[in-house]
Each structure stands twice: as C-alpha cells, then as structure tokens.
C-alpha cells in the first residue's frame, strides 16, 4: 500500500466516536437544562422582585382593589396576547420566519370602531358584537390568505394588513373618538364580585377556555407540532396550512373580542390602538419563559400579561413617566428574544 498513513481499522474510530458520543451527550443537555432553569427561575425571580419592590415603595400596590384593577386593565392586552400566542404556536417561534400577527392591535381598533359606529347608528349590542367579531375574523382571514395562499412571511403579511386596517379605522372614525354607551357595555366595565372588575373575570374565563383547547386537546397538540416541526406534522398526516390559517382566524377573532372589551373599557372607540402592539408582543414573547419546555403557552401568556400589567401599574403608582414604560417593554423584548434564541442555538449545536 502506498498510503502514507498507517492503516487504522474504521472500528477503532467508531469506538472513539462512540465514547465521545456517550460522554459528550450529557454535557450540552445538562447545560441546556441549567440555562432553561436559570431563565425560568430568573423570570420568576424578576416577577416576584418587581412585586416586592412595588409593594414596599407603593402602599396601595398589594391591595385587592389594585390587583383586581391590574387584572381588569390587562384584559384587553391579555386577550390580544393570547391570540398572538396561538399564531406563534402554529407558526413556530422563529423570530423572523415564524408565526406573528402584527395586525392585532389595529384589528382591535377597527373592531372597536365598528362596534361603536353600529351603536351610534342605533343598532343593538347583539349586532354590534357580531360586527366587531366579524371584523376581527375577516382581518384574520386576510392574514391567513396572505400567509398560506400567497406564501408571504407572517411578519411582512401582517405588517401590511396592520397598515390597511389602521387606514380603514381612520376612514370609519375620521380620526375621532366615537362614543358608545349601552347597558351591556356598562355591565362589562362594572365591578364584579369581591370588588374585582368584570373584565378581570372575562380575562380569566377566556384564558381557561383557550388553555383547555390549546394545552389539553389533540387539536392543540397538533397545533404545536405544526409550528415546531412542519415536516413532522406533515409526516403524521396533518394539514399544515389549514392549521396555520386557522391560527390566524383565531387570532383575528381575539382581536374582535378585544375590540368589544375596549369599547366597554373606554366607553367608545379609541384612536391610537396601534400603541397596544408593543405590550402585546412583549406579553406573548415573555410568556414562553413561564413554561417548562420554553414554548409559548396560554397560561404562560396570562402570567406574563399580569407581569406587564403590574409593571405598568407600579410605574403609575410611583409616578414614573409613562414614556419609560415602553422603553422597559422594548428592553424586555430584546432580553427574552435573545435569551430564547441563544438557548435554541445551544439545542441545535
């Protein structure tokens, strides 16, 4: 043989490879677990830390009234964030190509405007509710078509739809607040049992229903499969595109529901619904750190909605400028996204 190298049976290398395989494997897995625990523990610690700091510095912070208040104030953002969470579950959590619905806040604005305009025009609450939910569903359908039929990345598709929807709202309301007050709206925004607002109960009830579907039924499991690994879902015989389209319809419906809640909360439509987008995205992304597997969950989103709500509430109680709040929210997005991205990279390595 002319080979300059000594002949080494392949089996020797394999034994080496196997050793590396056996000793090497626990390392990254353990590191990942540790990082996951650190991230989750860190999130919870920050959550509790924020509560403690606020309750010490702001005397009213930890009263039943204030907590109920925060729950009620978080209802609209919470419902929207749950809609966004469904889209992220079905589309995958890749920040660039994964599931995202940027049109949600604008959707809420238009749905609220439709509701208020119908009431103004003398229609009843029943028709107004149908109008608002229908508007939300229609926006969801446009998103679904743009993403699954036209094949546009959700980030771009929903960005475009967001602008269209915001424009429609301007046309409908002439950029004014359309007031609306009915008995139904008044009942929604009233206080409920134990001095906790009705909106708070709605948020909890809505979370319960959606969490039951998403986290405890085969449908929900399939939704996760479609988002996490479309090829695997396809191999299991699941219609991937229908699931993605369905997730946009669901989130559109959430936008419509949030619209109804916002009309009741503000006694009318509102301009500048788009400001809601940042807190909603923060809430949905932050929600993943409250799950064991670091995946988006409905209950995790509820927790993070409360966290964001307490943060805003605490800042208000401490008389800290509200402009600082969006700065903190932006920072949170950066932190959460980079932490989960780094973890994901470790997983693939």
């Amino acid at each position: 043989m002319l080979v300059d190298a000594p002949y080494i049976p392949a089996s020797v290398i394999e034994i080496e490879a196997q050793k590396a395989f056996e000793t090497g494997k626990p390392g990254p897995a353990f590191g990942r677990q540790l990082a996951t625990i650190a991230l989750r523990g860190g999130a919870l610690a920050v959550f509790i830390g924020v509560l403690v700091v606020f309750s010490v510095t702001a005397p009213f912070f930890l009263t039943v009234g204030n907590i109920g208040n925060v729950l009620g104030q978080s209802a609209i953002a919470g419902v929207l964030a749950i809609g966004l969470t469904i889209v992220i579950i079905a589309g995958g959590s890749n920040v660039v190509t994964g599931g995202i619905d940027l049109s949600l806040a604008a959707n809420m604005g238009l749905s609220a405007a439709v509701y208020a305009s119908l009431v103004q025009a003398g229609h009843g609450d029943g028709l107004a509710i149908l109008g608002a939910l229908g508007t939300g569903l229609a926006i969801g359908a446009v998103n679904a078509a743009a993403v699954t039929l036209a094949g546009i990345v959700p980030l771009l598709a929903t960005l475009a739809v967001m602008n269209v929807v915001a424009g429609l709202e301007l046309v409908l309301t002439q950029n004014t607040v359309v007031p609306a007050s009915t008995d139904f709206l008044a009942a929604l925004s009233a206080g409920g049992p134990f001095g906790i607002p009705v909106l708070a109960y709605i948020l909890l009830g809505f979370t319960l229903v959606v969490a039951a579907i998403v986290q405890y039924t085969p449908l929900g499991l399939r939704l996760y499969a479609v988002g996490a690994f479309p090829d695997a879902a396809r191999a299991a015989g699941l219609p991937v595109k229908s699931f993605v389209a369905g997730s946009f319809l669901a989130s559109g419906l959430c936008g419509g529901l949030a619209g109804v809640l916002s009309v009741s909360y503000l006694s009318g439509s509102t301009t500048g619904a788009g400001d809601m987008l940042l807190p909603v995205v923060v809430t949905a992304l932050l929600g993943t750190v409250f799950s064991r597997r670091l995946v988006p969950t409905i209950t995790g989103t509820l927790l993070s909605a409360l966290f964001v709500g307490f943060l805003i509430n605490g800042f208000q109680l401490l008389n800290i400028s509200s402009t600082l709040v969006s700065g903190v929210q932006g920072l949170l997005i950066l932190l959460v996204v980079s932490a989960t991205t780094l973890l994901g990279r470790k997983e693939n390595a």
């Binding site: 499991l221 399939r222 996760y224 499969a225 996490a228 690994f229 090829d231 695997a232 879902a233 191999a235 299991a236 699941l238 597997r293 670091l294 995946v295 997983e347």
Partner: peptide
C-alpha cells in the same frame, strides 16, 4: 421527523 419539544408519548401518538 419528530417534534423536538414533544415528550416521547406525544411524539409517538401525534
């Protein structure tokens, strides 16, 4: 073709 974030049971019965 298995979903990485699933448990073994979930992946088997998907």
């Amino acid at each position: 073709l298995l979903v990485p974030t699933f448990t073994v049971g979930e992946a088997l019965f998907l």
